[in-house]
């Protein structure tokens, strides 16, 4: 009798425990959700909804105000990949990434290594090298626009004083993409320099001390200590610069507006033109999806290839 009683009591307690645990789990789940709610709402409003809307729009033709009119399935995508303008835009975008990313990173790496030396007045140089970070894209572009000006631009005047014929920096299709790249590299340097310098300064000095004791030379230390220790920072900088290069817009809009002969019509500018000048939101959305997939792939590829070489302490 007492046995069964005890079992019964036991059972009831077990019975009672379950809902309590469940309740607690729900409660903690709700608590967690409450913490996440603001970001879920924000992400839904500003990221997920626009993204699904973009995918949706890419299957339609639209009116000038962006209302979808005719469902065309994949036609926007098919037209896009058979359009010489879009293919050119893709080519220019990849060339632009190729021109700007390695140059920005190498120049900033060089600058940050020399600015990392402990010299008198080095603070001044560090400020100088990172100063382009404080210049907005619009201001920098206007400044370069004047340098590139065919009649009174400084660059052509300097060339002229050496007896070299003036270059149509922004009007010659051979030069335009390069000119925009130069502007972009100049603008990138401030940010990449600052991040790389930060990376250099966080390298443990004991590593250099041991290397000194071993009698390692400057270049050997650079190759065996500095670069490996800097690799996480480098990885970050390269990823960010590549994404930025893919998304460049301001300097194009101000310097060339995609010209000459669509030579600098980079993909984001092409999306802008398609949507807000030609009022074809459908094909603009299709291009945006392609850009999204492209950046996703590039970043994934980088993580796959690059991360193996990255040395985390």
């Amino acid at each position: 009798m007492s046995m069964t009683n005890a079992a019964q009591i036991n059972e009831t307690t077990v019975f009672d425990m379950e809902p309590v645990k469940k309740k607690q789990r729900i409660k903690s789940f709700m608590k967690g959700m409450a913490f996440l709610l603001p970001s879920i709402i924000l992400f839904s409003v500003f990221l997920f909804y626009p993204m699904f809307r973009t995918i949706y729009l890419s299957f339609f033709l639209t009116k000038a105000n962006g209302d979808p009119t005719v469902f065309v399935g994949l036609e926007n995508y098919i037209n896009m990949f058979s359009s010489p303008i879009f293919l050119k835009s893709m080519k220019s975008t990849f060339l632009f990434v190729l021109y700007t990313v390695p140059a920005s990173v190498i120049i900033s790496l060089f600058l940050s290594i020399i600015a990392n030396e402990k010299l008198k007045g080095i603070g001044f140089f560090r400020t100088m090298y990172s100063s382009t970070m404080g210049v907005s894209v619009a201001a920098a572009s206007v400044f370069w626009l004047y340098l590139f000006n065919p009649s009174m631009g400084l660059l052509n005047q300097v060339l002229g004083s050496f007896g070299i014929e003036a270059i149509g920096w922004l009007t010659d299709p051979k030069w335009a993409l390069l000119s925009v790249s130069i502007t972009t590299i100049w603008m990138n340097i401030g940010f990449t320099f600052l991040i790389l310098l930060g990376g250099l300064q966080s390298i443990d000095s004991s590593l250099y001390e041991s290397a000194d004791i071993e009698g390692a030379g400057y270049l050997y230390k650079l190759r065996r200590v500095t670069i490996p220790m800097l690799s996480p920072t480098m990885f970050f900088v390269i990823t960010v610069t590549i994404i930025n290069a893919f998304q460049s817009f301001g300097q194009i809009d101000i310097l060339t507006q995609g010209g000459p002969i669509n030579e600098t019509n980079l993909i984001v500018y092409s999306i802008y033109r398609e949507a807000f000048v030609n009022y074809k939101f459908g094909s603009a959305s299709a291009q945006a999806i392609v850009l999204f997939i492209l950046i996703l792939l590039m970043t994934a590829l980088q993580f796959k290839l690059g991360e193996r070489k990255v040395h985390y302490q």
Binding site: N149, P150, S151, G168, L170, T171, D172, T256, Q257, G259, P260
Partner: peptide, 9 residues
């Protein structure tokens, strides 16, 4: 004289 698309220039 080629000024491209830039009227100001």
């Amino acid at each position: 004289a080629n000024y491209g698309t830039n009227g100001d220039n």
